[in-house]
Every structure is written in structure tokens, then in C-alpha cells.
Design a protein around this nucleic acid. Structure first.
Lengths: 362, 362
DNA sequence: ATGAAAGCGCTAACAT
DNA sequence: ATGTTAGCGCTTTCAT
């Protein structure tokens, strides 16, 4: 017979079995005191607190988050917003991109530690009803914090709406000034890191397949690559081609790079899909990787470990980033969040798609 | 006064901007009538309904789910429970298992269509505080439906607790009688299908690497294989070895199968991890796949498309299953859910790891 | 077919 | 340091 339900006749409508009232009655105190204990409020004598806690434990009482929300306090909900089309496309493709997984788990575990839960919501970016969709989610849930990812995190229509809602929010993949906590994964540094790795291997012509302008992080990766090339005194002329993060665009970009009279001996692709495409192009052209051409990928989703050869890749620490975002969002109640963009550092995972440049320079 | 935050002074505590009251005032009706319109209740004249709906649209009103929950109605929340250790291990490993992704998206999209949201929760199976963990989640959220996956779906401690809570729940991967909606993915049929595929290719000795007894579905897969072998007049003697769904156990199982004086010419592994292990063992032994040995995997997670060769695999329709579960759970308010186990059919995806048996029988 | 009143479980504001 | 009161936004009685 479970705990709780103590004196309650099982006849009535089945509402919440054990409420704050039961606890108050059991401990012989007022509702308020119980509430204070639950919320670690001040002005409770240790002895009192202990007694109430004992009743809570005994009855197995857990506060209803709906009721907590109602009375003007927290909802204990963190909302994570992702782009609908992109998320569904990835999901359908089943090609092993696991950023939703990483977001969910990174966020969920951290949230759980603090008594919060995460809810995911898909929202169309390119749509005149963004406001309605997002506004509805906010109104329905009234979350205590919201996490937005690219491209939403750079969509002014969205960030303005969030700012107006008064709910703390984190912009992942954005370093713009403005409302909300900006968090990045050090794209510029990582691109430079990847480039340096290739330079150390003796490569002189290092191509970059960039992402679309719509994403600022695509630009930061270009910056990092340019910076590292410049530092080494290497030219970047004609070595940067834009893709759209899709496989097909990667094919085109890789071909355009390799069609040059003086083709790169190494290529950095700004995401896994375009790297996979580049790998295929190399194979079609009879170029061995890494003997004839080195390749580095961005994202490091699981699939790049299973290609032949496994790809050297820049790891995007998505779980850690979302986890940190959740923490800052929860803390925003009490401490003011950092005004400067927060950076969660990724790293380069060296595998077998990168090797020394050929001495003949080809 | 007050569309949105329009007239609201930013001074006061910021509560829900547009409430049912605003709508009632705007439409010049009682709260009750608005509530009836929201919930598609009876006894509202079409004209009235239209007028209220107009106000709702105009003000952009969205009901607060917390308030809806409070007043004894629905919470519009579906809770999905997964095993903590297994989920975290998969996530950390980043080996491309995507069942969480499939669950989340399959469930989330269907839930969203009906105005519901999904929340994920990790619970330890092997723990004396299952009751506390699960009970706390239920008490805090009061979801309208709960989805449990293996091994939870076959844990009596858990299913009993759920039954007692009075909240509709779905047991995925379980066909036991008892409370809750049982849903399976046709494991027995699928195992037979895989076996038949190999038999048609001329294989006579088809090994099975089974899953642990803890999972009923492991048994169903054995049954399906046995049945197909029997139908074809083939012996199963010594051709079934148990693993635990882990890579290492797959290595051991594959070795044990291939060490036989009369080794199988084809192997079915009960999940992807063990299939990957089998592939590695084959490679180590100099067996070409599929020339020397055919291999079929269960689950069809993204990674098996990227191995060399890509694996023929049984597809587990996780997204469809969870989607169906969500639907039945939501419908449980009105229609009684099916008493018989529901089956969502998977399929066999033929790739390049299966081929004709060698004529010499080796 | 509509409205008024009561109350869900909890916390904020105000006592004491 | 503790208790009392009012009310969050909504749905459920129970009128009319």
C-alpha cells in the first residue's frame, strides 16, 4: 500500500495523493512552515525543519510543480528550442548526428540535479508564425529558462521575443551583445587548432569548406582558419569555398577545391556532412586519405568514427555546453548571469584521416 | 487594456500576460464559457464559440498548463521513462545508438499535434529506490500518460507502481498481461524474417547471438529463429549463444560460434553492438563478409550503415512505436485502450553483409 | 446555453 | 520564528 494517502479515503477523485496539507497536519505545523522547509527558506529553526522533513520523508511527499508554478514561483522547467526542419531532417536521415541526444542528456542530467526538467520544442525559423509558435510554448509552459540553438539563437525576432518575455534565456552559438546569455564553443580557436595540426604535418595548401553565412559560427571558423594560415605565412587565396552544411553542397565544394590547378593537400570541412561528402569525392578521384589528401571534420558526431579511415575531427562539446547553459539559467534567479559570452572549449580528436603532406607537395 | 503585455506596467510582478480573464472580458462572456470553448465543451452556441475564439486569437491567449493541471484536468504531459545506466552509457559512448533520438522525436511530434509535451526521465532499474524516484517524478509532474521501455516495462515493481498511480501507461517491449498497454515490435516475426532471408540464400547453419534473459524480447527473437529453422528442417543445435547486448559479450559469443567444428555460415546478432563485435571477430579470423560468413544485425541504428560492409539489419521502428504509444495514452482518457498487445511491425533492411552460402558448405 | 461560486496545491504578503 | 490570508489561472460543481 504505498506510503502516503495516509488518512485519505480512496473514494474521492484521485488528486495529488500527498499534499502539503498532509505534511502540515502530520508535523503539526502550518502550511507555510512546510513550504519554507521545501524551499530552504529562512526563519525555520533546525529542530522544526527536521521535524517537517521527517514528515515529508515519511509520507513521501513531493511538491506538485504545477501548483508551485501557479503560486507565482518557479515552474522548474527549462525549455530547449530547436529548428524544426533541421531537427526532423536529421532525425529522418538517421545518419548518426546526435546533437539532440547530446543536448537532451547534457541538459537533462544537470537539470535533474537541481530538481528541474527539460522540455524540447521545435520551432520553424523561416516562418511568419515564429512568434505564435514560440509565444504559445512560453505561455503554456512558463519555463524558468529557455535555450535556443542556431539558427534561432541569432534570429532577432526570436531573441527579442524572449527578452520581452522576461524569462532568462541562453543563446548557444552566438556571441552578439544583447539580452540572453551568449555561449559559444570556441569555433575560431578550434578552426585554428585544426589548421595548426595540418600545418605541423607540413601542409601548405589547406582548403576550407565553410558553412553558410546564416550561421555566425561558420564565419568564426573561417576566421580561425585564416588566422592560423596567416600566422604560418600561408595564403588562403581561393582556398575557401562555401557550403550549406548539407552533403550535396559538400560534394560541390570539394570538387571545386580539388579542381584547382593547385589543389589543397588538406581540407577542413565545417561539419560532418560536408566532410563525408569530401571523403567520397576523394575516393571517386582516386585520392587516398590521408596519403594524398588529409581531411578534418567539424562536429565529431559518431559517424565519423566509422568511416574509412576514421576522421580526425573537431569535437563540439554540446552536452557540456547545454549543461552549462542549464546551470546558468537556473542560477539566473539569484546571481546575475555573465554579460560576456561564455565559452565552452572543444578539442581536436586526431584519428586517421590526417597525415604528413607529401614531400613532392602534391 | 492589454493585449499581450501591451498595457501592463513592467513594474508589477510579471505573471501570465494574457489569461482566461482577459479573454472573457474581451468577449464579454463568463470565464466558464471561455473554458468551454478552449476544451471544446458542449453547450456553446456556434456564434458564441466563434466570438470567443476571435478574442482568443486576437489576444493570442494560450492556456497555462499548470493552471489546467491544478484545476483537476489534464497536465498535457507524457512522461517517458528510460533506464539510467543504459541511457547514459550509450550517450557517453557516442557510438551512434539513436533510440533516445527516435523516442524523443517520434513521441514529441505526435504529442505536439495533440497539444501535449514529452518529458524524459531516467530511472535506475536495479535499485531499492526505484519507487522513490519514479514516485517523485509522478507526483511532481502528474503526467497524463507514462511510457516505459525495457527493462522497466517488465519490472513488476515499476508496473505495479504505475498501475497504482492510476495514470495510463504503455509498456514497450512487453506482451505480458496486466495493467498498462503492451506494445511490441514483432520481434519473433522479425527474427524469423531474418532467418528466412539467410535460408533463401542457401545457408544451413545459421547461428544466433541472443540477448540476455532479462529481456523478454531476447527470448522472442530466439523463438522466431527457432521457428524459421524448424520450418526449413534445419537444426539449431549449439547454434544459439547468449550475450548481454554488450560488445565484449558479442566477441565471446561470435568466437564460441566460430570455434565449433562445424561453424555457422551466417550469424544473426540480437543487437548492433554484438553484430559489430561479430564483424570484428570475422575480420580477425580472416573471414570475408559476406563471402565467407553472412551477418544480420538487430536494431539498425545508424552505425551499421557505415561499417564495411554495411550490415543487413532488422529495423526496430522505435519512433513509430513511441508515437503510437503517445496516441493511445492520450486517447485513454476517452476510449479504453486495447487489451491485447499492440504490435508495430518492423522490417528487414537488406544491405551487403548477407550473401549466398558457399556451395562447398563452408 | 450560460453564469457564479468553490477550490485545486502552493507561495507571497502580511500578521503575530 | 511561525501562522494567517489571499490569490495564481483554470475547471469543476451547481445554479439559472
Amino acid at each position: 500500500m504505498a506510503v502516503g494517502n495516509g488518512g485519505l479515503a480512496p473514494t474521492g477523485r484521485r488528486r495529488q495523493s500527498v499534499t502539503i496539507k498532509h505534511v502540515a497536519a502530520d508535523a503539526g505545523v502550518s502550511l507555510q512552515t512546510v513550504s519554507r522547509v521545501i524551499n530552504n527558506g529562512p526563519n525555520v529553526r533546525p529542530a522544526m525543519k527536521e521535524r517537517v522533513q521527517a514528515s515529508i520523508d515519511k509520507l513521501g511527499y513531493v511538491p506538485s510543480i504545477a501548483a508551485q508554478r501557479m503560486s507565482g514561483s518557479r515552474s522548474y522547467l527549462i525549455l530547449a528550442i530547436n529548428d524544426r526542419d533541421r531537427t526532423i531532417a536529421d532525425w529522418r536521415a538517421r545518419e548518426g548526428r546526435d546533437w539532440i541526444d547530446q543536448m537532451l542528456l547534457g541538459g537533462m542530467l544537470t537539470a535533474a540535479e537541481r530538481g528541474y526538467r527539460m522540455i524540447f520544442e521545435l520551432v520553424d525559423t523561416h516562418s511568419d508564425h515564429v512568434e505564435r509558435e514560440l509565444g504559445a510554448a512560453i505561455a503554456a509552459l512558463r519555463p524558468d529558462g529557455i535555450i535556443v540553438t542556431p539558427p534561432h539563437s541569432e534570429n532577432l525576432q526570436i531573441t527579442d521575443l524572449l527578452a520581452e518575455s522576461g524569462i532568462p534565456f541562453a543563446r548557444i552559438g552566438s556571441k552578439e551583445e544583447g539580452p540572453g546569455i551568449a555561449i559559444t564553443m570556441g569555433d575560431e580557436y578550434l578552426a585554428a587548432l585544426a589548421t595548426d595540426h595540418l600545418i605541423e604535418l607540413g601542409h601548405k595548401r589547406i582548403g576550407l569548406i565553410a558553412g553558410p553565412d546564416e550561421y555566425s559560427l561558420a564565419g568564426w571558423r573561417i576566421d580561425g582558419w585564416c588566422e592560423a594560415m596567416g600566422r604560418a605565412g600561408l595564403s588562403v587565396d581561393g582556398l575557401c569555398v562555401k557550403g550549406d552544411f548539407g552533403f550535396e553542397s559538400g560534394i560541390a565544394a570539394a570538387n571545386s577545391l580539388l579542381d584547382r590547378p593547385d589543389p589543397p593537400t588538406a581540407i577542413i570541412a565545417s561539419n560532418d556532412q560536408m566532410a563525408l561528402a569530401t571523403l567520397q569525392v576523394a575516393r571517386e578521384r582516386g585520392l587516398a586519405v590521408p596519403e594524398d589528401m588529409s581531411l578534418i571534420s567539424f562536429d565529431n558526431s559518431p559517424v565519423v568514427r566509422f568511416t574509412d579511415p576514421p576522421l580526425t575531427a573537431v569535437e563540439q562539446p554540446i552536452a557540456a555546453t547545454v549543461s552549462r547553459a542549464v546551470e546558468m539559467l537556473i542560477d539566473a534567479r539569484t546571481h546575475a548571469p555573465p554579460a560576456e559570452p561564455v565559452q565552452i572549449q572543444g578539442e581536436l580528436v586526431v584519428r586517421r584521416s590526417t597525415g604528413p603532406a607529401r614531400v613532392d607537395g602534391r
